[in-house]
């Protein structure tokens, strides 16, 4: 999954470095906080980076006599925490690119985005969900499989977009020559059929061993977190929800048949709206367009946002396992 140089355009590489910059910043801040509680985290980062290096170079036997290697993104996230794993994997990728020629120097941001961000975080999210639902191992297995496959999918999209965004006047691709129709299936097939299962089995067996021998050495998720910033963010977003009303036109693709008919006529494309849309299924929602009768539209927006937040919070609360006991 290591993308070499010249497969991605400089614009894509730059965008992905920019996308990774906030992740690295938050990771450094989070790890510094983690170091205050567990001092060994700091040297552990470096040692985990070398562990990730060894995992990536270790060939595992697969049916058919050939071999494949795991990445260990989800495993590291579960062992040392997702933010620390993200930093450790970033360092591993940097060393591989600069010292061992595995993965590109310019494509470092893209590789870090796929393997040091998507993979550990998707894997860890599944693991935490499994833990909450009392199916820790199942969560980890799904996380390991999903983590590597989502990362492969994103890598496939990054590669497949190149002929669309970087080509000569005659249409010849300047970087990766394979389009989405080839790059995505090629990346996904290999990972869905082989690499994903290798990652799953490897992650699960190492986790099982560590849990059996030294369960205290596993990363403990901080139990008490300050929820105020999240609540403030949600309320803030709800308050800002009518902001879109400042724009007078309808959002692109959200036209009703009448508006679409007018637009098509303006652009001399057609004098009628598509028949499928006119005679299609039309559902009349309770609060159509977030409007509540008798109230200004902006108040309707805010109320709708608050209601949605409340419904989702209640849903999550309902799915959680209660800790209180009954006599």
């Amino acid at each position: 999954m290591h993308i070499p140089d010249n497969y991605l355009s400089p614009a894509t590489c730059g965008t992905l470095v920019a996308a990774m910059a906030p992740v690295w910043t938050v990771a450094v801040i989070k790890v510094k906080a983690q170091v205050k509680e567990h001092h060994e985290t700091l040297p552990m980062l470096g040692i985990a980076a070398s562990l990730a290096f060894l995992i990536m170079m270790f060939n595992l036997p697969i049916p058919g006599g050939t071999t494949a290697h795991a990445v260990g993104g989800t495993l590291l996230a579960v062992l040392i925490g997702p933010w620390a794993a993200s930093l450790a994997l970033t360092v591993t990728l940097a060393l591989q690119a600069l010292l061992f020629g595995d993965g590109g120097i310019l494509a470092f941001g893209a590789n870090a985005f796929n393997m040091a961000f998507i993979m550990p975080f998707v894997g860890y999210a599944c693991y935490r969900l499994g833990q909450k639902l009392h199916h820790e191992k199942l969560g980890l297995a799904i996380g390991a499989y999903l983590g590597i496959n989502v990362a492969a999918l994103v890598a496939g999209i990054e590669l497949g977009l190149q002929p669309l965004i970087a080509h000569t006047a005659s249409g010849a691709p300047l970087y990766c020559p394979y389009g989405l129709n080839i790059a995505v299936p090629a990346m996904l097939t290999a990972h869905l059929l082989v690499a994903g299962w290798v990652e799953l089995v490897f992650t699960l067996l190492v986790f099982q061993f560590v849990k059996k021998v030294a369960p205290t050495n596993l990363y403990q998720t901080p139990t008490r977190t300050n929820q105020r910033p999240w609540i403030a963010l949600l309320i803030g977003l709800a308050a800002l929800s009518p902001l879109g009303l400042l724009a007078s036109n309808t959002a692109w693709g959200e036209w009703d048949p009448t508006e679409l008919k007018q637009l098509l006529a303006q652009q001399h494309l057609s004098s009628q709206a598509p028949q499928g849309m006119v005679h299609g299924f039309h559902f009349q929602a309770l609060f159509s367009d977030y409007a509540i009768a008798g109230l200004p539209v902006s108040v309707g927006y805010i109320l709708s946002a608050l209601s949605a937040i409340l419904i989702f919070l209640l849903l999550i609360r309902g799915l959680q396992h209660g800790s209180e006991t009954t006599d």
Binding site: V28, G46, A49, S50, F53, L54, A88, V91, A94, L95
Partner: peptide
């Protein structure tokens, strides 16, 4: 510094773990 230190430790311990 965290990243540089991680790099330095990683390359040293890569040999030991290997």
């Amino acid at each position: 510094d965290v990243l540089i230190m991680t790099c330095a430790i990683a390359i040293t311990y890569l040999r030991m773990l290997g």
